[in-house]
Design a protein around this nucleic acid. Sequence first.
DNA 1: CAGCGTTCATACTGGTTGGTATGTAACGAG
DNA 2: CTCGTTACATACCAACCAGTATGAACGCTG
Lengths: 205, 205
Amino acid sequence: MNQPARRQPDRTRQTLLECAFEEMHRSGFRAASLDAILESSGVTKGALYHHFGSKTALGYAVVEEVVRPWVEASWRPVLEAGDCIAAAVAVCQELTRQRTVRAIEYGCPFNNLINEMSPVDEGFRKRLQQILDDWREGIVAALRKGQAQGVVRADVVAEDAAAFIISAVEGCVGMAKSKRSREFLESGMRGLIAYLETLRSRSSR
Amino acid sequence: MNQPARRQPDRTRQTLLECAFEEMHRSGFRAASLDAILESSGVTKGALYHHFGSKTALGYAVVEEVVRPWVEASWRPVLEAGDCIAAAVAVCQELTRQRTVRAIEYGCPFNNLINEMSPVDEGFRKRLQQILDDWREGIVAALRKGQAQGVVRADVVAEDAAAFIISAVEGCVGMAKSKRSREFLESGMRGLIAYLETLRSRSSR
DNA sequence: CAGCGTTCATACTGGTTGGTATGTAACGAG
DNA sequence: CTCGTTACATACCAACCAGTATGAACGCTG
């Protein structure tokens, strides 16, 4: 039994965020039903509207407090690794390997939200853009570091490569949603890995 | 004046498809309001339900009769060109150049529909998957032809490269939706073009 | 223990949406 | 001209959904 009458406002809020994230991942933000979130979280409507002023405010909180850390965590290895290309390849391989068919169908929450919400809600757009900017800056820094180390070719334009790599990853995961199998995702990722290898300087092969 | 009482069922149907396409492009399929489509097309609900059995059926027809030709037309140059790499580069440049800021915000209809509808509606998923398969097969054929001509490196895995190229294009257009400016799209595309050049065989440079 | 703000619970509402029932006018066949 | 089918038009409905009003129970403070 969970304590029936005990109050844990922070935990209630966190549960709400997590259940909202999952519902948004499955259905998208606009089609996400508050009733469904309330049912899966075991929270009532009064509690929800105590913690969040509106459905939109809940969505913003999910972006800031769930999606953002999730994106950051997935690429931290690349930013911290010695050989950023090898680390990126490893992340790409991990991305496909541990992904269930279910996860392939639902895709990347970050990509989903950009595609759904950016054109129709400025608050979502700004928050998602900020996450994208930070991600891109991280990749740029990693590539520059790699260039200083002699791992990455000096003629690579870091900004362009970073935008391209992020786009390719999200594009692969997105396109794979229309396929039932893992094949497309794996194939696209092999293409990406082949590209990443072209960024390596001859001296570090 | 358009003929007030004259009947043009084929034209009515076509108008409906085009207006539905635009509304779906702006709002997505599920958030697309039939009333909005009816208003922009000047057609009444009775006429709509005469031509299409349901909103879903209308959506399927839009995919088959508007989205599919649109996707096919955008890549035909690559499939027919002599130098498929040069043609692909040209398509990418054209893709960014002629695109208005408005079009950047709303993104690619094909990508939008895959991301929104594939997980939640099997009928959409199958139709979109078929378009993706055909697109990919086209690129594979173009790459193979390029390899036979000595334009494309022989060690390129055509299936992987095709999946990767399509994903990268759609990823760039998708990510750019979260940015107001053209910068990200152009930057990602420069990265893509740099990648496309790596596919070229040394003998054809 | 008294009092009060925080945290939640329940019932209800107004608006929107996809869909339908019913009617009518155009159109082609004979 | 007649008649049945096609192609629309209008009015209405049931479902769903975000949001609100109201109130009660908890729990900290003094």
